[in-house]
């Protein structure tokens, strides 16, 4: 589905990605984790074409979206849904309008169809009854849910969730991760989730990628990561204070 090859990217001389290569097969839920500032968000933005690489390739079903023209790139955008770290909700639009907006812009559906579909997604993320509220009338957790609902309303082939659990309590955090796993199960799309809730992420992901200082230091199943003896992997898991044994 998505193959990132030898991706390197710097911002003002600071290397955000250093030769990252990653393959996310179709239908897989990949959890991306790592310490703060290790390049997780940048990698997500690269995957959906929001950042241009210094070197390397991003292949979307074999097509390198870093070299295609604007029209082809827009077509690639249409196949992605992204939930941004700080929600990126349109503050002047209601919950219903926010969730229905991608359908309004990207599809030819009628207003009634859009409303029905958006309401379905709102109910799916447990926010039925809030559809007429503005984003500033919602709690942090509710805003995240709206952002996830908006990102997946078009059933994108690739859903990217950039830290949907940031700043949330463990219970809400786990509910949101379970909800994303449920969406993936229903829509059968490819999902990449970044989260600082390591245990939660390991419990819902089929594959885990660990980034460290702009490099992908580990990639595989949660159980394999748990067995990994690399010092950086051990240090990260120790710092995450997972329960002994891990259970994977």
């Amino acid at each position: 589905m998505v193959r990132i090859e030898n991706a390197s990217l710097s911002f003002d001389g600071v290397e955000a990605l250093r030769g990252v290569s990653l393959h996310v097969p179709r239908g897989v839920l990949l959890g991306l984790m790592g310490p703060l500032g290790c390049g997780k968000t940048t990698l997500c933005r690269v995957a959906c074409g929001l950042e241009s690489l210094d070197t390397g390739q991003v292949l979307f079903d074999g097509v390198d979206i870093t070299t295609v023209g604007p029209a082809e790139r827009r077509r690639a955008y249409r196949r992605c849904g992204m939930q941004f770290q700080n929600d990126a909700l349109f503050e002047h639009k209601s919950v219903l309008e926010n969730v229905g907006y991608p359908l309004e812009r990207l599809t030819e559906q009628s207003a009634a169809e859009i409303r029905g579909r958006a309401m379905e997604r709102i109910a799916m993320v447990g926010l039925f009854g809030t559809e007429n509220r503005l984003p500033n009338e919602l709690s942090g957790g509710q805003r995240r849910r709206v952002a996830v609902a908006r990102a997946c309303v078009t059933d994108p082939e690739l859903l990217l969730c950039d830290d949907p659990t940031a700043g949330l309590d463990p219970v809400t955090s786990r509910r949101i991760l379970d909800m994303i796993a449920g969406i993936r199960y229903q829509a059968r799309n490819t999902v990449v989730v970044i989260s600082s809730d390591v245990l939660g992420l390991m419990s819902v992901s089929e594959q885990i990628g660990l980034l460290w200082d702009g490099k992908l230091v580990a990639h595989g199943g949660p159980a394999a990561l748990w067995q990994d003896s690399q010092p950086k992997v051990r240090r990260f898991l120790d710092d995450a204070q997972l329960p002994l044994g891990g259970g994977f």
């Binding site: 827009r74 941004f84 929600d87 990126a88 909700l89 349109f90 907006y101 812009r105």
Partner: peptide
């Protein structure tokens, strides 16, 4: 700064 502009790009706008 709240990524809404990137949100538009992601919607192919």
């Amino acid at each position: 700064v709240t990524d809404q502009v990137d949100g538009l790009r992601c919607l192919a706008i």
